[in-house]
Every structure is written in C-alpha cells, then in structure tokens.
Design a protein around this nucleic acid. Structure first.
Length: 535
DNA sequence: AACCCTCCCAACCGCTTTACA
DNA sequence: ATGTAAAGCGGTTGGGAGGGT
C-alpha cells in the first residue's frame, strides 16, 4: 500500500508515542479513555497497519484490536481523509477548482458526492476549499458561480418553466425528476418570521422547518452574492478573487473602477456592486428587468413589520430545473437574464401551492437552484391567484411586459402583510423591512428603526412614500447592502452623489448592469449535467 | 519583537442513513 | 416491524501558520 503517513507538519511535530502531546481525552470505550485531537505518526502507523491486515470497515474494532485509543469514527475519518492510498495532496488544480464549482452548482453542499467526482480528494478537503472560497468571494462581493453557469441555469430554468406548460411549473416536478433522475426537494415554507425573517440576517425560524433551512441557505448562498460595497471600493481586485472561472471563460473582464465613469448611475452602481459582468444586457431586457418598487415599510419601535406568517405551512415541491447539460465541462455561452422577479417571488411569503408529497427535501442542500426555483414556484402560484384579484399594479409602465409576477406580488401579498402594514411585501419590501433605506432621502438617518417608513408596492399609500423607480434587483442589493453595511450608505452617497439626492424616477437604463449582475447571480439555478452520475 | 488578524485545515460533533439481527 | 450499531455526511470548531502593523 502506498499510503503515506500524514505529512502534516502539525502531526509531524507530534511524534512517536501514542498518548503523547497534543490531543485531549474524551469519552471512554470499554474503560479505555479515547483520545481526541490531532493524530500522531504512531497512531497513524497503527491504523494503517490495522487496515492493511483487516481492511476498511468495522472501525470500532480498531480500538479493540489495535490498542489505538481512538473511537471508530475518528479512525474512519483519519483513514479516509489522510491515510488511505491514492489521496491527492496539495492545492487544487485549476481543473479541479472548475469542477468543484460546477459540481457545487449542480449538487449543492453534497461534498461526498462531489468528492466522488474528484479522485484523490476528500469531501472534507472540498468542503474546506469551498467554504474558504465562499468567504473570500463574500468579502469581495463576487458571485459564487461563473456568469455563464448562471445564465445557463436561468435559461434552462425558463425553458423548464415554459416546457412545464403550467405557470409555476409545479406540476412539472415529477416529470422532471423522473427524466433527469435528480430529485429536487420540497420546501416547507410555513412561516416567515415576522420580525426576524429578514435577509440577509439568518432568520430564526423557531419551527426548524425547511423554511429555516431555506432561509439559511439563502443566507449562505444568496447572501454571498451581496456586494460588499465598502470593501469593493477600497480593495483592488486580486487575481485570486476573480477565481479561475473568469480567467477560464472570460478574457475581457473590466475592472469596475476602470470603467467609463461617464455613465452616471449605471456605472456608479456597477462600481458599488463591483460589477464585473462581462455581458452587456440588451436594452430591451433592461426595461423588462426594471420595475418600480414603492416600498411599504413600517417600522415602529424597532419592530419590523414583515410578511405575516401564514397560518398554514405550505409545502412546496420544487420541480427540478436541472436537466442534461449539452456540453459537459464547459460553461455555456451567455444569454440574457430572464427573470428577476424570481427574487421577488422567493422572498415573499408563501402562497398556497399544493404539492405532491413525495418530493424529497433539499434541506441544507445549499443548492441555490432549490431556492430560486421555490421562488419561481411561489411567484407563479401567486401569478395564478392574482388573476383573480384585479388589483392595481405597482409595476412601472415601462415594464408592463413582465409585470404580472410583480402585480401578483403586490396584490396577493396583502394576505400576508403585517397588520401595521397596509401593503404587501415583495423583495423590496421584505428586504426593506430589514433595511429602512431611503434612497430618495439619501439619508440613513431617516431610516433608523423607530421612524416609520412606508414602502409600498402598489402606491396605496401614495403620499410621503419613499418611492423609487428601481430595478427590483437593485432594490434588493441596496437593501441588503444598506442593512448589512450601514456604513455603505456613505459609499453609496459618495458614488451616487447627486443621484441619490433626488428621487430616482426612472433608473431603468442605469440599472441594467447591476440588475444583470445581480439577476444572473441570483438566478444561478444550476443546470444539472451528468445527471446520470447522480444516484 | 509583540501583537493582531485572517486563512487554512484537521478533527470533532451531531444528525441521518444503512445494515443487520 | 423494530431496535441497535455502524457508517456516512455535513456543519462547526480549534489551533497553527503566516502576513501586516
């Protein structure tokens, strides 16, 4: 066996004796105090020797038969992660990194399954790599997935939705699942915590249901897209920050701060989010992506009024968006980002969506797809119901074409909104719940808790509203950033300058870059390729 | 030199799934 | 069908390394 005793310096320092330095002693097994902490070379040798003789498995027997004071679990882990043969040591290659990204887009946090696709790598290794990568990208506000992948996923999502033939695509679940072999989990969407379900903070869902998982997933993944505005400005891009996919797929990435500064709002906002997105969206799409958000927001005495928890837990089955990839291993060429309302849909409280009971849950899958698709499902479910409610639309006249979902948002949401709030919630509103942001006033001081703000979607409270015509995505970003980084307002003010000093009535052209990036990032529902690999 | 901070990774913990009696 | 142990898995933690001040 070519297995090598760990070369880790940590463990090389600990030496020779079994019960030597390092390591603590935890529980006991059969009267033997089991050691915890770093493994020593001697312990490794014992374990290797044991496995040579007896093979893998039956790890609890190791302690009994070898005298090793380690629990079976620890032995198994040590063997799997360090001692077993053919383990690859050292940094991930670019190809491995690319594969990890791709696999994560498809699988979410299924480290073991990802490891199966990376010979010589362990799940722990991949997990650690991913986590540090996430942190790094979070810091600089980069999306986790390459734009191409995002686009591909969105495109496929749209195709799936269309192909389902049913608004929301809910009923397409089984077919999709059956056809691609990938199971998209259900999601319990039972209640958005009224006061805590506020992105980007991890909401506390007392029931521990999937909504909790969902929101946590949203936080971990979705939140990671949130541009760190202040940092973006201060920090120059490091090659490492761009991660391999940019170098792999895009050669013309323009450093955000080197862009044409004469583009007004667009460039400013692009800077804010460090928009490195290489594709310039179609002007038409810009229009479509833009919608008007009049935030309805009531904050009284520090208590946010958010979406009212629904009385009934709504179990949503999320049809899989994933299907066969046409060119495995390659990021697809980009297309236009179609649906930003997904964001809006997702964040809103649930509608009643009947679902099949037999879809597994994605809990903690970390798969953004599930989150986004749920958003889609919700949005579509609302779409359906909104046909009944002939309510007024808060949609800006310039984006009627895509207003339906948003209309729905404004109307149907009334069923959920807080008693204090006469208005519904959508992305903007819910986010604004946690982000009393007054863009119009360009003053954070106007938005401190305790000062009531009215952000409305439909203009019912048309007076004294903090109105802004804004891409919904931009609103999201703004809300997030302002909430998460209170000081970011300074950055915004610095960058936007006078743009924030006056009410932004129509920022459609200017929101494109931001919207696109955000949308593409947000809508990065992975497309599953190599479905056949999945069990 | 000392301190602080961040990064990285090995190991642990707790939960779920699987196998088996 | 049920209970239990083993194995698997994902999240979290602790601590060393290294860089910056």
């Amino acid at each position: 066996m070519s297995c090598s005793i760990s070369n880790d310096s940590k463990e090389q320092s600990a030496d020779s004796t079994l019960f030597d330095e390092g390591g603590s002693y935890g529980g006991s097994s059969n009267g033997v105090v089991l050691k915890k902490g770093p493994w020593t070379s001697a312990e490794d040798a014992i374990l290797v020797d044991y496995v040579k003789k007896h093979g893998e498995g039956n790890w609890n027997a190791v302690q009994k038969h070898s005298g090793l004071s380690r629990c079976g679990k620890s032995c198994r882990l040590r063997w799997a992660n360090h001692l077993r043969p053919n383990l690859k040591k050292g940094a991930f290659t670019q190809e491995e990194e690319r594969l990890i990204i791709e696999l994560h887009a498809k699988m979410g946090n299924k480290w073991a399954r990802m490891a199966a696709n990376l010979p010589g790598r362990t799940d722990n290794e991949i997990k650690n790599y991913w986590n540090t990568r996430i942190k790094r990208r979070q810091r600089v506000g980069l999306p986790l997935y390459p734009p191409e992948l995002c686009l591909q996923a969105m495109q496929e999502n749209q195709q799936n939705l269309n192909a389902s033939g049913i608004p929301g695509g809910d009923t397409g679940c089984h077919d999709l699942l059956q056809s691609n072999g990938y199971q998209t989990p259900d999601v319990m969407f039972d209640s958005l915590n009224t006061n805590q379900g506020l992105l980007p903070y991890v909401p506390e869902f007392p029931d521990g249901s999937a909504s909790s998982s969902l929101m946590k997933g949203l936080n971990s993944q979705f939140y990671s897209f949130i541009p760190r505005m202040s940092r973006c400005q201060k920090r120059n891009w490091e090659p490492d920050d761009c991660v391999s996919w940019y170098s792999n797929s895009t050669s013309d990435v323009i450093p955000p701060l080197e862009r044409d500064q004469n583009d007004g709002y667009q460039n400013k906002m692009s800077q804010l989010v460090d928009s490195r997105f290489p594709y310039d969206p179609d002007p038409v799409t810009k229009k479509l992506l833009s919608f008007r958000v009049n935030h309805s927001h009531s904050i009284l005495n520090g208590n946010f009024s958010a979406s009212k928890p629904t009385a009934d837990a709504v179990k949503l089955e999320l049809p899989s968006l994933q299907h066969q990839e046409t060119s495995s291993g390659q990021w697809r060429s980009p297309t236009l980002p179609p649906v930003l309302e997904l964001v809006d849909s997702f964040i809103q409280s649930p509608g009643s969506v009947p679902l099949p009971p037999d879809c597994p849950s994605p809990r903690s899958s970390g798969l953004l797809e599930a989150l986004v698709y749920e958003a889609n499902s919700l949005g579509n479910s609302r779409n359906q119901s909104s046909e009944k409610s002939k309510s007024s639309s808060m949609i800006s006249h310039n984006n009627v074409a895509h207003s339906s979902a948003l209309k729905t948002s404004s109307t149907e949401f009334r069923g959920y909104h807080d008693a204090k709030s006469t208005l519904g919630n959508s992305t903007g509103t819910i986010l604004s719940e946690c982000t009393p942001t007054s863009v119009t006033g360009s003053s954070l001081e106007e938005n401190i808790p305790g000062i009531e703000q009215s952000w409305t979607l439909d203009g019912e409270r048309g007076e004294n509203l903090n109105q802004l015509h804004f891409s919904g995505i931009d609103a999201v970003i703004g809300s997030f950033c302002l909430k998460e980084h209170g000081t970011a307002m300074d950055d915004i003010t610095a960058l936007l300058g006078d743009d924030l000093g006056t009410e932004v009535k129509d920022t459609t052209p200017g929101t494109s870059a931001l919207s696109s990036e955000w949308g593409l990032t947000w809508n990065n529902m992975p497309a599953v390729s190599q479905i056949s690999e999945l069990p």
